[in-house]
Design a protein around this nucleic acid. Structure first.
Length: 744
DNA sequence: GCGATCAGCT
DNA sequence: CACAGCTGATCGC
């Protein structure tokens, strides 16, 4: 037995039998060349090899998150990467199976950051990949993608982008450079400005008209069945747009529509089109509408409580606007911080406020005047974003505010949620706004999708296939709202080239490269763990802004490679596995850390217990048969159990588990994989060991975020002009200092 | 009753 | 610390 003293809190010590056994030392990264392995032994680079363009399955009904089995008293609904990107077929002898091995042929194709297509086509390796199993793989697609990246880079280098000193440009600089604190996203005046929905060139329109146009398109999209969305967007051509814009303009309204039109429009925006007939029959015009009471509604035939309440509620909002003067409303408009057009003065200061500018479903009236909405916000948690923190101290970035009269969505959007030069938002569902219709989700972790509910109707959500499946299954977002981005495939969204890559974080996590027309590429890492091929992907791309996951942006976080930690866990289990009364627990998130327990299973050739809901999730995500064979839902088949990480956070909970198995197990060995372990142990220590009686917990520095060293390497390779940190735990000054360390 | 959100916790 | 959750309470519909 190991040290059985209570509350042992030493840094990691090799388990006794590990000390006794003869083992190869850990190999340095990339020491193992696996390129000679047969295809089925190579690490798979695509999450869904050969299935990248598969049409997503029909939407299953969102399932309850509760765990029917009740195991460990919590929801054990997990997911996993369908194919971990760094599969280890033989841990002890090949510690690092980094797919960096594939970088060699790729690198040779992208010498000097430029790639000629014919050179690539003639490359034997590339041909082999195209024709072989990799023809549809991540790698092959990355190669293709990089061709474009190289070419694009050439274009960018040749072109000079003239900066003007206009007010807009000054604002743009504020937005895109470190000193800015507005958190706004903006478009460059020099750019071709397109409607993000219909892609129409709206450069010639004034700022207000652009917004009106975009809102109109958005309304169209909201009012159409999802399958009709694309068609409707295509139909949103210039001429029809102009008419629609006019309709939205209250000044021109009487010339173009009947009095009933705004009422019917408003009704439809509430999702109550079925009562159009009633309002037409009763000849309720816009003015009459304002004076309607609930009794009136009842008397005209709106007998259902829900719709009636909805109308009453919306009417009270309208009256609020009536009560405000146009000037007041205008002043409030200036308070908008995350508004695309908020950076310009509204030229139509005499607008009548009584007509809703953009009546849309589920939109509270306060959304029209976000300045109001931001009042009274309060901090729940220290913001992770330094820019937001520069705002008044009561603003928060990663924790949503509530009761702010804005449907719970704070208007102070952090910079890391915006892509400069585009109208796009990334992981910004806490800051939903009508002005944006392109919402990107980097991965399915709560702190990134928070605010996203099944009632989302603000446009499209762009994410990986794995994330899309999770969003559909767990939140209930219909597939029509989801747009799957294939890894390594450049797509044009609203006139902006977007390419995504595996972020090496959790299943489905992606890094996104945005290449707007202004030539200022933006790379958003989401949450990511650096791997060498990442910088290879970006060869030839000049990155203007890097929105960086700075979770461990501190020199104290210098943890080992995941493979080394996996090896440690494997050895620790091996060391104790002779004991039939030992239960091993491995911590995991809802999604994340799958690679750890999957590799443990593979190497030990032993099944791992997961609960049924987790299994269902893994199946849903398309885990391979080979991978699936390592999981069992029968507790008695395995003495290695996967549990939520938080279960392992306290010995009390682990004792609870121990009590459930008093007859079967006399020892519990838990592995709590977290990068934070690194900060509180000796440098590069593979872990920390804690023990209370017959319960041992190893805190192992298995991180799905980049270490400080990795961050530094990544930043040096990407060499961006500007770094926008996405995480800040210790205040803006600290973040700035840490970021400066990265580039020093 | 239910979904969304928040405070507190690990 | 808090990666990324979870639980229970509360609010609004």
């Amino acid at each position: 037995m190991w040290n059985t003293g209570d509350s042992d809190d030493d840094d990691f010590q090799i388990p006794p039998s590990s000390q006794l056994s003869i083992r190869k030392p850990l190999q340095p990264a990339n020491a193992t060349n696996i390129s000679h392995l047969p295809p089925n032994k190579k690490p798979r680079l695509s999450r869904y090899p050969g299935k990248e363009n598969v049409t997503p399955p029909p939407s299953p009904s969102p399932e309850s998150s509760s765990d029917p089995s009740g195991n460990y008293g919590t929801d054990l609904l997990y997911s996993s990467s369908s194919t971990p990107d760094c599969s280890l077929d033989c841990i002890p002898s090949s510690v690092d199976c980094s797919i960096g091995d594939f970088s060699a042929p790729i690198c040779s194709l992208v010498e000097d950051g430029q790639v000629l297509v014919d050179k690539l086509e003639n490359d034997d390796c590339f041909k082999a990949n195209r024709e072989g199993y990799l023809c549809n793989s991540m790698e092959a697609r990355l190669s293709k993608s990089r061709i474009r990246l190289g070419i694009d880079s050439g274009i960018h280098e040749d072109e000079s982008f003239v900066e003007s000193d206009s007010e807009l440009d000054v604002l743009l600089k504020l937005c895109s450079e470190s000193e800015g604190n507005s958190g706004e996203c903006s478009l460059s005046k020099d750019d071709l400005i397109q409607c993000p929905l219909c892609s129409m060139d709206i450069s010639a329109l004034g700022e207000e008209q652009r917004q009106v146009h975009t809102n109109k398109c958005l309304d169209n999209s909201d009012n159409h069945a999802p399958e009709q969305l694309q068609d409707s967007l295509k139909k949103c051509d210039k001429s029809s747009s102009l008419i629609e814009e006019s309709i939205d303009d209250p000044v021109q309204l009487p010339q173009l529509v009947t009095d009933l039109s705004p009422v019917l429009k408003w009704l439809r925006s509430l999702g109550l089109a079925k009562y159009e007939d009633v309002f037409i029959r009763e000849e309720i015009d816009w003015d009459t509408l304002h004076s309607l009471t609930e009794e009136d509604l009842l008397s005209i035939g709106i007998t259902s409580l829900g719709p009636r309440k909805k109308i009453v509620n919306a009417l009270s909002g309208l009256r609020e606007v009536d009560a405000s003067s146009a000037e007041e409303a205008q002043a409030q408009r200036h308070c908008t911080s995350s508004h695309i057009t908020g950076r310009h003065e509204d030229k139509t200061t005499n607008r009548k406020a009584s007509v809703p500018k953009k009546p849309t479903a589920n939109k509270l009236i306060t959304e029209f005047f976000p300045g109001q909405a931001t009042e009274g916000t309060k901090i729940r948690k220290a913001p992770k974003d330094p820019v937001a923190e520069k705002s008044p101290p009561d603003s928060s970035s990663r924790r949503a505010v509530r009761r702010n009269g804005n449907n719970g969505k704070s208007k102070v959007i952090p910079r890391w949620n915006c892509i400069p030069g585009t109208p796009f938002r990334v992981d910004a569902f806490k800051y939903l706004t009508r002005e944006c219709s392109h919402w990107f989700l980097t991965h399915f972790h709560l702190d990134h999708y928070q605010g996203l509910t099944k009632s989302f109707n603000h446009g499209k959500i762009y994410c990986s296939l794995v994330t899309a499946k999770l969003v559909n299954m767990k939140i209930g977002i219909p597939w029509e709202r989801l747009h799957v981005l294939d890894l390594g495939q450049k797509v044009n969204i609203a006139g902006i080239d977007v390419t995504c890559f595996d972020a090496n974080h959790c299943p489905g996590s992606i890094i996104m490269l945005f290449e707007p027309a202004n030539g200022k590429a933006v790379l958003h890492t989401g949450d990511f763990r650096y791997s060498e091929e990442m910088s290879n992907w970006l060869i030839g791309s000049h990155i203007s802004s890097l929105i960086l996951d700075t979770t461990y942006c501190n020199p104290q976080y210098d943890f080992p490679k995941q493979e080394a930690v996996i090896q440690f866990v494997v050895e620790a289990i091996q060391a104790e596995a002779f004991n039939p009364k030992a239960l091993f627990l491995i911590g995991s998130y809802t999604i994340g850390k799958e690679r750890l327990f999957l590799e443990v299973a593979r190497v030990l050739r032993e099944k791992i217990y997961i609960n049924p809901s987790k299994l269902k999730l893994l199946e849903c995500l398309g885990f391979s048969k080979e991978d699936m064979q390592w999981f069992t839902v029968k507790e008695e088949e395995s003495h290695i159990h996967v549990v939520p990480l938080w279960t392992l956070a306290s010995f009390k909970r682990m004792k609870h588990i121990a009590n459930r198995y008093t007859n079967r197990y006399s020892l519990i060995v838990a592995f709590s994989p977290t990068g934070w372990t690194s900060g509180k142990t000796k440098k590069k220590s593979p872990g920390r060991r804690l023990q209370q009686g017959t319960i041992i917990r190893y805190e192992v520095p298995y991180s799905e975020h980049s270490s400080f060293t990795e961050l530094k390497e990544f930043v040096q390779k990407v060499s961006p002009e500007v770094i926008i940190p996405s995480v800040n735990n210790e205040g803006p000054d600290s973040a700035a200092a840490m970021v400066s360390l990265l580039v020093s």
